[in-house]
Structures are given as C-alpha cells and as structure tokens.
Design a protein around this nucleic acid. Sequence first.
DNA 1: AAAAACCCTGTAGTGGATACAGAGTCAAGT
DNA 2: ACTTGACTCTGTATCCACTACAGGGTTTTT
Lengths: 143, 143
Amino acid sequence: MRISQLAKAAHCDLETVRYYEKINLMPEPARNDSGYRTYNQNHLDRLNFIRHCRSLDMPLKEITSLLHFRDNPSLKCDQVNQLIDEQLISVENKIKMLEGLKEQLHALRNRCDDNHVAGDCGILKGLDSDAEFGDCPCHQPSS
Amino acid sequence: MRISQLAKAAHCDLETVRYYEKINLMPEPARNDSGYRTYNQNHLDRLNFIRHCRSLDMPLKEITSLLHFRDNPSLKCDQVNQLIDEQLISVENKIKMLEGLKEQLHALRNRCDDNHVAGDCGILKGLDSDAEFGDCPCHQPSS
DNA sequence: AAAAACCCTGTAGTGGATACAGAGTCAAGT
DNA sequence: ACTTGACTCTGTATCCACTACAGGGTTTTT
C-alpha cells in the first residue's frame, strides 16, 4: 500500500502520515525501488488508532503513551484508564470554561442593539472596562 | 510607566507586551534615554482591551478588527455586533463538539474496569476499532 | 510520447505566545 | 567606588499539530 492509499484508508492527509513518521509516532515503512514508502495492514491499524485518539482530542504525547501499552500487551493497563480519566477531566474543564465564555459573550452582546456608532457601542465599552476582569475564572485563554 | 509595570497592571506577561508590539497590535511606545519602553494610560487601556478580548478567547485577528472600531468611534458598529455573534457561535460549536467527545470518552472508559493487562484492555480495543469512526461528527480534531 | 497523477525531501508558515542567550542599565547597599 | 541584583534590550528558538509549498523524480493514463 502506498502513502496516499494509507492516508485515504485512515481518513487523513498524507502529509500528516509523513509528519507522524518524522516524529516517530509511525515506524519507518519499507521502501520500493524508487524510494516510495510501502505500508501494510499493521501500519494502517496503528494509524487508525492514532487518528481515533486524535478525534478524541488527545495530545500526541498521550497517544504515544497509549501506543506503548498497545505495543506491550502484557503491561497492566491501570495507566490507560487513568489517562482516559484525565482526558475526560480536561474535556469537562474546557466545557466549563466555554460555558463561562458564552455567558460573558451573551452579556456583552446585550449591551448593544445594532444602531450605534462605535463611539456609543456598549460592546466596545464593555471590552474596555476591566470590571470583574481580574477575578474572571476564564481570564486565562485556552492554550 | 515601564514595561513590567504595564504588564503587571494588565495581568499579563511582559514578553506578551513586546509580542503585541511586534505584530502591531500595540503601538510602538516612546523610549527613554536608555532605550527603555515608556508607556502611558492609553497604552494600558488598549492592552486591557486586548487582554479582555483574549480572555473571551477571541483570535488576535478579530481583536485587530475590534480595535479598528475602538480607534474610529464614528464608524457604525454593526460589524462589532456581528463579530461577537460569530464568536458566540464559534464558542457554542466548540461546546457541542466537546460534549460529543465527553460522551465518547465515557463510553470508552466504561469498557475497562481497572484490573486488566493492556492486551485485554477494552479501552485500547475501543481505540483500535474504527467502528463508527468514519461518521463520527467529532472526527476533525479541534484546531 | 505526452500529460496527469503520484511520490520524494526539505523548508517555512500557522497562532499565540513562551523561553532563552547575551548584552546593557539602574538603584541600593557596603 | 564597587558590587549585587533587578530590570531592560534585541534576537532567535521552541511549543503543538499540522499545512503548504518548492523543486525535483516516478508511475500511470491517455
């Protein structure tokens, strides 16, 4: 299987495949006489695993760690569970933060009713003021 | 006011201030005899505005656009409202996507009950399988 | 035989900062 | 006068997870 077929089968860009190889997430595949990469089912399975993890928004570092367990089936999997739990907490925290943002944006939006010039716009004034700014729980932008 | 005082007053890192200057989000300040940057209240107001926007997770590009209205108070502010509306929609979309992730992670977590080796771990198996993978609405990782 | 489609390597760019290195400046204490 | 430490300067590199070329070689299709 050549790189574009692999990429297609895993629903991802072929440049991403090469990128994963460069950062050692995917192993170096065999090459044919012209130097083209040649993949097999194992590569596809691994890539699917990676893309599935990415679709769950896991960072590549964590995926690397999960692949280690996948590669060593005799290891205890406690840490796998812990990793998923942490990921879950991270997602829940992001949701909470975004709900906060949503509230703030709604409040901001309600300050202006569409027929002003910028100098009278309640939204811009709201963004200027730093009332409740220092204590806002979402003061740290999402990384 | 010197750079560290400005940064402190706006609750941000002083390297961030220099960064904003480099990308022309903040104007070049005056310099004293030793070449130290010297800021005034206008700078602080502007930086607070920017940081307030960033705390609402707005991209710098949108902030640039908002600053344009702030700098030109006679412009109609329709576009400001539109910008906030778009930001609101973007935040709501992110929330929806994360709720989907959360469901998936819960389902994944329930596949393993802590006392296995990696070879028997339901989570790893779940990540291996690409069932329901192609159609997953959250297949595109957040950028 | 020519054109289109594929593949290669290597480099640069994205956003929004953050983290130095290496040098200069300033204020306080000894 | 000298030293120490805190502050500032510029410039470059790093982070994450890709994405987008440029400039070449190869394979497949027409």
